[in-house]
Every structure is written in structure tokens, then in C-alpha cells.
Design a protein around this nucleic acid. Sequence first.
DNA 1: CGCGAGATTTCTGTCGACAAGAAGTATACA
DNA 2: TGTATACTTCTTGTCGACAGAAATCTCGCG
Lengths: 233, 233
Amino acid sequence: MDDTAAALPERKRGSGVKKAYDLLRTEILDLTLPPGSPIDEVQLAERLSLSRTPIREALARLATEGLIDTLPNRSTMVSNIDFLNLHAFFDAITLMYRVTTRLAAKNWQPGDLEIIRAHQRDFATAVANHDALAMIGTNRDFHATIAEAARNPYYLSLFVRLLDDGRRLLRLYYQSFNDRPPPSVVEEHEDIIAAVTARDVETADRLAKAHADQIVRQIQKLLAWDQRQEISL
Amino acid sequence: MDDTAAALPERKRGSGVKKAYDLLRTEILDLTLPPGSPIDEVQLAERLSLSRTPIREALARLATEGLIDTLPNRSTMVSNIDFLNLHAFFDAITLMYRVTTRLAAKNWQPGDLEIIRAHQRDFATAVANHDALAMIGTNRDFHATIAEAARNPYYLSLFVRLLDDGRRLLRLYYQSFNDRPPPSVVEEHEDIIAAVTARDVETADRLAKAHADQIVRQIQKLLAWDQRQEISL
DNA sequence: CGCGAGATTTCTGTCGACAAGAAGTATACA
DNA sequence: TGTATACTTCTTGTCGACAGAAATCTCGCG
């Protein structure tokens, strides 16, 4: 496609792996690369006009994050969404919603709330524009920022992983609403912000749990519907 | 040291990265490589009679797990134990103790308990032998196996990371007891096994919390003591 | 004697190439 | 025609080497 621009390799030094990593990550999470897609190192290398080495390093990172599965001496492919262990996912993400929101209410520091509110504005804008991709991204950023305000890197890393794993699910979820999620989600975010601002830990916990439960229930409903369709084939 | 045996490179194909990864991991966790130690790729490469490529891949994995810090275009070193964020560590590992033990009591399947009991036997043996390294390892395996019986890969991965991060702390912890941890730890393990076996979720939760609290308190006491010494200098 | 600019050294990031496994293919034999 | 075996091909794991960036050293100047 853009082979003509591959002449001058004027590229910053440490950007190769990041480039490949970011590209693959977003393509996987946005379902541009569906689960099960094989990943060819050589093809990727020439597509990014890179060597195989940085691609390899990026793949290693993605593998440790569970986004790709790699068979020894054989092909590597985008990891499947594990529909059998979804209950584990729901359980974990609900707990992380609660814990991070609790701790954020307890530990936020000056400056955190501004960033959180900015992400909430972006999310509301994305909702207004019916932009599914932007919704998913801004929603993730909103909750990730709350988790950062919680000041616990362990919870943050697991939560981010869950949110990213969930991006693929959420993509399906929002599609089920024709890119129009229930307006209550925006309001729930506002309520969470209010509780966190007031340092009301218990209310923040309760709202986070309700928020998570609502999303989980919607996804479960969607999956039940999908499953019925699948059976009817 | 063993340069004489570097003649024949008869090595299995996919074993290079694993070899380097396992070696570095254990040396970091056992404090053979103290926090802050610089890691030289070339030196490691010739020490394992490998190329730099597999070492690099192993380092990338360790970096994503937070065991090493890598400055761009500069040296990579063993990550420091973050004594400032210890409360975050205690909070997270306590929660993971509770959650995994709860879920194990709920979700264990035939065969799980045998493995758990085997690890507990190994742990008791290590305690009897005053073998600190073995204690730390078997204790980790014991709780990790419980987490596996909980059947939630998300909790498992975070818990394993916490246990491994904590291995370096626990190393200090057990040294403070002259490699002789309080006998109650063995009994607490037994109680946890009993509660899990009986599928008594609430009791398992309570025991796990008590177990975690006890360890956290001991480490905090140790750290307070260390800190006082540091001040007196 | 202190300090800053240039040179050197050292280490990392990237590259192209080679070899080992595994999948797919063709062929020979029953 | 079906099956087992040898071959081909394709992909991955590893290697040695080169080039860029940062730290260190050196030298000249104030």
C-alpha cells in the first residue's frame, strides 16, 4: 500500500517496538484483528518496514498480557475471547471496579479530579456522537484514571488488563445498542465522580458495584441472545 | 567458571529464553541479584553461552512483570522494592488472599485438594528443616495452588505476581525469624485447608484475612524495626 | 584549578541471515 | 484407491554484526 514511502528509514531509535506493539494492540482490541487471526511476523515486518526483531519483542509483550497465544515453533494467533470463563471475568472486573473506586475516593489528590472529569466529558461527547470506538476508549480511560487516583499500581494493572480484555466484549456490547448505550451510564459516571469528590467511600463502592452489575447484566443478556441465535442456526 | 563446557551448543530449540528467564527470575526473587543491580546483556549472553536475542526477550518479559526497570537506550536494572507503596502491596495481597481462598472453597474440584495438601507437606518439611528458600517457595506454591483451584485466571495472575514480588520481602521476613517462622503459620494453613475442603466460604475468607493480616503485621513490625535502626545511624 | 566542548567508549536497538521444526505435498507401494 | 514415507516449503528461534544514543574521558580555555 505505502511501499513507496519505505525508502528513507529515518525513524527514531526506540520507536520500533512501541509502534508495532501499539498497532497490534489497538487492532486486536478493536476487533480489526478478530480472535483466532494468525499473525505472520514477516508480513508484519514488511508492513511496518521493520525487521522481525522488534516485532518479536512486541509479540512477546502481547503474549504476557494474554492478548495473543503462541504455540512453540508454530503459528501465533490472536487469543480467543474465553466465553467459558466469562464468570471469572465478570467477578474480577466487578471487584476491581469496586476496589479502585473505593480507594480513589479515599486517596485522590489535587489534580486527579480534573483529569477524571475531562475523560467523562470526552465520554459524554462520544456518546452524543454515537461513536462506538471513542465510547469504548474514553470509558476505559475514565475508569483507568479513577484507578490511578486510587494509587495502587497492582489494582491498576489488573484493572487495565480487564478493561482492555473487556474492550473486545464491550465492542459487542455497544453494537447491541446500535452504538447507543443507555444514557444512564453517563449519569452513573457523574454519580461516581460526585461520591469520589465527596470522599464518600461507601457510596462510591455501592455506585461502582451497581455500575459493574449493570454492565455485566447487559453483556450477559447480549450473550444469551447471541447463544440462542447460534442454537437456532 | 564453566567456560570449558561451552563447546557443544547441543541445546533444545525453544529453551533459550526460558533458561534465561527462569535463571534471572529466581536470582532476582531470591535476592541473589539485589534490587538496583545492573544487568548486562552481553555478560549474561556469554554466561549462558547464548546470543543476546533470547536474553533480550527474557528481559522484555521480566520488564512487563515489573521485576526489572529498563531505561530507554540505557542500562536495565533489577527493580527496587518500593517501600513507599508497601501499603498498596499489603492491601492488594490481603484482598487476593481472601478472594482466592473464598473462590477455592467454592470452586475446587476433585484432585485439587491433593495437590494443595502436597504443597502444605512440602512447606511443613521446609519449616522443620529451617530452609528459608524452600519455605518461601513452598509457601508461594501452596497459595498459588489454592488460587488455581479458585478457577479465576485474572485473580491467579495478580496473586502470583504479588506472591513473587513478596518473595523478596518474605526473604527479609523469614530472616527476621532466623529462618524460623512462627509455627502458627503451618497451623493456619491446615485450618485453611479444612475450611476449603468443607466448602465453608465464610470461614475460609476469615482465615485467609487473618493469615494475611498476621503476615502483614509481622512485616510491618520488621520494617519499623529496620527503619529505627536506619535513623540511629 | 575549575569548567565546558569534543572525542571515545560502551551499551542498546535493529538488521539480515542461517538453521531447526512442523505443516503440507508428492510419490511409491500395497 | 488408501496409506506410509520422503521431500519441499514455510515459519520460527537464534546468531553475529552494525549503527545510534548516552555516559565517560580528555583536552583546551578561562
